[in-house]
């Protein structure tokens, strides 16, 4: 019996570190893609979120050493991508946002070729290509031409070619682009598994915060090239889920009654918010409403979303 050895391999402590990283594209006037970005990213699955044009793609190109920063420094896996580009690129896997696959090639051949381009010896490239395609769920279909694949399968091939050389860091640019809801779920589950089981750090670029927050250990939010917030996801979602209750009349009575029962009660407009501490909270709330004989208009569970935290943070910064 063989056991996966992922947990035994030492991973570098810091995956990405930047200091006052700035990138201005030349021109008149120059476009500032990244402004004074200082970051320390721990290993794990990292969500790099921001609207289109926030600087995510520029960030990836700088991490790969394909673009030089205008000022500031950057380190990837402890190396400077500008001076040690070859070494960085041999240990990083990159999945672009757009289509990048030759339709007339067989998937296994293509991933093997890309493995060799990353420096794997011929036979090992072949083996690892098969393995990578198995891990992304294309083992049975690996000898088919890529042109005949569905969008979801093509995304998986793109992921497989980024994974074939066993990188220490994966950079995935909008990996769920063009996928249907089921395909998105499958891709996200796969990314989570790569970070969790394979022990490979993953940077997932996305403009959909709600999508990546579920699979990430930490989040980096960019807005117009500036760092909005970077933190571990637990510290962003420490608040528990809440129940929002609206009644037609007697809101004050309800709030008082629930407070007396020892539930943490807050008021928000016409609604009463109660921390959803356990399963019983629902029943307690419903019983109280019935006892007071109040007309119940609304009762719903709110998840404390990271998006709200970013919004709050933004508001604080602005104010």
């Amino acid at each position: 019996m063989r056991v996966a050895i992922n947990s035994e391999v030492m991973r570098p402590a810091g995956i990405i570190a930047t200091r006052s990283l700035t990138k201005v594209y030349p021109g008149k006037p120059g476009v500032t893609a990244l402004a004074d970005l200082t970051l320390d990213v721990e290993p794990g699955v990292i969500g790099l979120v921001g609207a289109n044009g926030a600087g995510k793609s520029t960030m990836i190109k700088i991490l790969l050493g394909l673009l030089g920063p205008t000022s500031g420094t950057v380190q990837v896996l402890g190396l400077d991508p500008m001076t040690s580009g070859d070494e960085v690129r041999s240990r990083v896997g990159y999945m672009p946002e757009h289509d990048c696959l030759p339709p007339d090639m067989i998937a296994a051949e293509f991933v093997t070729h890309m493995g060799r381009m990353s420096g794997l010896p011929r036979t090992i490239a072949r083996e690892r290509a098969s393995e990578a395609l198995r891990h992304v769920g294309l083992y049975e279909e690996r000898y088919r031409q890529i042109g005949g694949y569905s969008t979801g399968m093509k995304q998986r091939v793109k992921l497989a070619q980024a994974l074939v050389h066993d990188p220490d860091l994966l950079l995935l640019d909008e990996p769920t682009n063009g996928l249907d809801p089921a395909g998105r779920e499958a891709m996200l589950a796969l990314i989570h598994r790569i970070g969790d089981e394979f022990g490979i750090s993953v940077v997932v670029c996305s403009h959909l915060l709600g999508e990546v927050e579920r699979i990430c250990d930490s989040l980096v939010a960019l807005d117009a090239g500036r760092l909005l917030r970077a933190d571990r996801i637990e510290s962003m979602t420490t608040g528990l889920d809440v129940l929002a209750i609206e009644v037609g009349e007697g809101t004050d009575d309800l709030a008082k009654a629930l407070g007396d029962l020892g539930l943490g009660v807050r008021r928000e407009g016409r609604a009463v918010l109660v921390s959803l501490s356990d399963e019983d909270t629902y029943d307690v709330v419903l019983r109280t409403v019935a006892e007071l004989d109040l007309p119940l208009h609304r009762l719903d569970q709110r998840r404390h979303r990271v998006a709200e935290l970013f919004a709050t943070k933004e508001a604080v910064n602005a104010g």
Binding site: A4, G119, D166
Partner: peptide, 26 residues
């Protein structure tokens, strides 16, 4: 059937000259 899970690669990475030669042959 054992799911042998993900295997790390600890062998040689042959680098730029090898990749260029491979691209030539390809």
């Amino acid at each position: 059937i054992h799911d042998i899970g993900y295997q790390r690669y600890t062998g040689p990475r042959l680098g730029r000259a090898y990749a260029t030669r491979s691209l030539f042959v390809h």
